[in-house]
Amino acid sequence: MKGDIAMVDVTRKYVIPGELVSEGKYKNSLNVFRVEDKYYSTRVGMAEITPDSVRVIPLTGPYIPRVDDLVVGKIVDYSAFAWEVDINSCFYAYLPAQNVFGRDYSPARNELTQKFAVGDLIAAKVMAFDRTRDPLLSLSGPGLGKIRQGEVVKISPTKVPRVIGKKGSMIRAVEMGTNCRLTVAQNGLIVISGPTEGIIKAISALRLIEKEAHVADLTQKVQTLLSVKVDEKSESESDGEQEE
């Protein structure tokens, strides 16, 4: 994101729905509602105002799928052609059988339950979604497929960027401090695998991040909790959207 360039002038403030964030002309906006030149927040969160953009980073809200998101979901049903997956969103997602069995999938030959049963957890990518149809999932990609072990923790989907941290710094701190591996899905589900004590520590770290997502020196706090030190000093108070 180009907002990261050090010299850009950013004003930040805490806002709630209906609150005036800024007045003026902006090229880009996010989670705001415009009346003439006035921009009002539509969410509870942190407003960031730069000379050409006004946006609110929400602290609470549902998961709305986006193409290419990594999600963790639960198989809840299946038909002859697809599995239905609960991805912690307002819509159930579909995983087409063709995506798993290949192009020559035939309901006469292949049995869906051989691969995934109702109640199984999977890691998947969102292949298509445009709000007029239910999201489609895909398992093509490294690390995708059935989740066989680990503890699954649910956090607010809006706090996922904070859990990942700037360029993955937060995840690294938690992984280093707990000897666990974390798979953080955009829909707010996190799979933790590793030793039991590590899992317990990781859960407490995640709860801290969730509770204090608006606090500036959060990575510091997490490092103290887990008694680890990540040497990058480039810790910013911003929690802009990070890619994994």
């Binding site: 809840v76 239905e84 609960d86 109640g119 199984d120």
Partner: peptide, 8 residues
Amino acid sequence: KSLVVEHL
């Protein structure tokens, strides 16, 4: 569907 229990 919402009552399906995770196998894990």
